[in-house]
Design a protein around this nucleic acid. Structure first.
Lengths: 165, 165
DNA sequence: AGATGTCTGTAACAATATTGCATTATTCTG
DNA sequence: CAGAATAATGCAATATTGTTACAGACATCT
């Protein structure tokens, strides 16, 4: 049993972020992608919440002094993060979240979205992907991308009445 | 083998639409939903294409004389069609398509989207849903909605080089 | 340093979706 | 059938999400 797939509310969030940033630098080095200061700061915004954030929400959380990043800049940076696999798009919400799992392609993964705390979690689901594959193959459909997003209530939110984050 | 899940290019599209409209009236009667002239015409637009159409695309295709439906009107009508189960939302494209299957809830269904011809098809995928359920249950996640959309190339488009519709 | 390519900034704009309120139809009740 | 209540549609404005085109800044490599 994978148990709760969402981060524990009491987890050490600071080190969780730093660890992810470290991994991100490694991954970018491997892939020859430049994780610039700006890109890292966008990734940090995503990592800070365990939620999926809209592009404009990222802009708001990013603005330090009075400076506001232009939409196009955020979208460009998001594109980079997406194609490096450091973040994913939540199609059902037009939003983006940082990837914490160690998967390569999105193959065999599924996304859980909690309606209570808005947090997002990824999980392995090879059986589901196998079943999908058998449907598509028997109908002659050549798959290029699979979107598997599940909305509901996470274990923490079900326990505590109040949202977990 | 379900074979090709998309409508044959040569199918009798006129009667296919009329049959679906007939079913829609039955369903609305059952559910005490009023399928007004305007709502039916929006449904017809969706049925006419076997594709997922954006709200503004519906507006364009709908305008007869010079009159253009306001966005809000289309969105309201779409909401009605969605909640009656006569149409579904394609989350990955912010678009909507008419439902041709006979399923009750969206449970156990999956959506195929062809990148070539832009057509949409639904398929039964009970095994995939079973596998998903086992992941969510073991992690204590209470599912309210599952989004399962698959992009790729349909059998017709793979055969013909040129898109099937 | 100079050439090249990548990254970021600025401004305008396109596409998608919603809010609030007014008006018209339809249904319900007496 | 009149009048009230409810549902459907119209209208205007605006919010949210995403893109295009072009210019300037920064890094990297000879």
């Amino acid at each position: 049993m994978p148990d709760n797939l969402f981060p524990r509310p009491e987890h050490d969030h600071g080190s969780c972020i730093e660890h992810a940033i470290g991994r991100a630098h490694e991954i970018c080095a491997e892939k020859s992608v430049r994780l610039t200061a700006l890109r890292e700061s966008v990734l940090r915004v995503l990592l800070s919440s365990h939620k999926a954030l809209g592009a404009y929400e990222i802009i708001e959380r990013l603005q330090t002094d009075g400076r506001r990043l232009a939409p196009i800049s955020v979208y460009r940076i998001i594109d980079v993060l997406l194609s490096a696999g450091l973040a994913h798009r939540l199609e059902s919400k037009n939003a983006f979240f940082a990837c914490l799992s160690e998967h390569d392609s999105a193959n065999s993964m599924l996304v859980l979205v909690c309606d209570g705390c808005y947090r997002v979690a990824e999980a392995e689901a090879p059986d589901a992907w196998g079943a999908i594959k058998s449907v598509t193959q028997s109908s002659g459909f050549a798959v290029t991308e699979t979107i598997l997003e599940i909305q509901g209530t996470c274990a923490d939110c079900r326990k505590t009445t109040r949202p977990a984050a």
